[in-house]
Design a binder for these strands. Structure first.
Lengths: 200, 200
DNA sequence: TTGCCGCTTGACACAGTGTAAACTCCACCC
DNA sequence: GGGTGGAGTTTACACTGTGTCAAGCGGCAA
């Protein structure tokens, strides 16, 4: 795929990952990543010609290290549609903080870098598929509200579970991660489940 | 407040406004604004020393031109809490597209410019107050769900009505503005209103 | 020994923001 | 008429960060 020693490549990806994770608002430059990886700035460009490529590769690196696929797959094994919705909200909701650092950087590039935009949009499309599947399971059980069409319900769930919404609730509103996951579960049920035995 | 001819200042603000409104993803540079205003780039800096200041002034300029205050005030006169919630969602939801151009630019600067961050956060705090007031009215009528505390309900409503969520639904999901407003009204009621006579 | 691979060093182009200084134009005021 | 100051213009430049280019260097393998 790309030139250079795979070990160096991995060191760069690790450096990018951890810097972005720790960067609380601060910019992470190519030079910072190089320094942290113990490599020259040009070496970084040898492995990743564009900043966007490095960021994209970093998300994949994290996915591999954290095993997203396995985690999201778990939500597919839930019994009922409602349980599946809960499981999906929990799985994805708890994955957001893991990729948030890179996500931030990638979202910021989205505006002026078409590659970054495509890469991030692709990832979000994958999340959307998860939402769609959860809604389908709900509908199959006859538990989907008739207030929204399945497509609308998918859109709403996907928007609710966006990284931006997570940022707003966690950072601006000061919710804990636990509160976020529980709150989103409750909100998703209220919003999308038909007969939920809700009283008020 | 600032030096220079108020007319020139207004021309610059108008230029910024219309360029940002029309800029669909494209960057709007200080030079672009100057050119459109029929003025030198340096003249822009004479009126607005920093890009962030220009953007902030532009939002205020739009507010004045579009009369937000009046529009939002209308939602305060609604009879019941539920009506007030509807009115607020409608008023703010229909205002988002008006400021979206500048909003985008300001949100993009938020990351590395503290002034831009403060300015945008202040604006969003104002929206939050509106959410809070709507929730309070709902609670006063005894119509607020007991699934969430008033604070949580405010946070959820505020997040739902964020510019990012609007972008997601309108741009990524292809909702029309009408569909957005109606969808948000329905979602807000489902999520927050206790006895809404909902069937499914 | 030769040759390549992986990396380093150092220089540079480019864009966009922001600063600085000198100069023009005009209106106003004595 | 002559002086003054405000508003804007022109030109030039510093700075930051991305991305490119070219030369060089150490180690390893044929």
């Amino acid at each position: 795929m790309s030139s250079g020693n795979p070990e160096t490549r991995a060191r760069i990806l690790d450096a990018a990952w951890h810097l972005l994770e720790a960067a609380d608002g601060r910019e992470v430059r190519m030079g910072d990543i190089a320094k942290r990886a113990g490599v020259s700035r040009q070496a970084v460009y040898l492995h990743f010609p564009k900043r966007a490529e490095l960021l994209i590769a970093t998300t994949r690196h994290i996915d591999r290290a954290k095993g997203v696929d396995a985690r999201l797959a778990a939500s597919r094994n839930a019994g009922s549609g409602v349980e599946r919705l809960d499981a999906f909200v929990e799985a994805w909701g708890n994955y957001i903080p893991e990729i948030h650092g890179v996500g931030r950087a990638l979202m910021a590039m989205r505006e002026h870098d078409p590659d970054a935009k495509t890469a991030w949009d692709d990832r979000m499309q994958a999340v959307r598929q998860g939402c769609e599947a959860a809604i389908r399971a709900l509908a199959a059980d006859g538990d989907l509200t008739d207030a929204f069409s399945p497509a609308e319900a998918t859109d709403l769930l996907w928007t609710m579970l966006s990284v931006r919404a997570w940022e707003a609730l966690r950072t601006d509103c000061g919710w804990s991660q636990r509160a976020y996951v529980d709150g989103m579960k409750a909100a998703a049920r209220r919003l999308l489940v038909a007969r939920d035995g809700r009283s008020g």
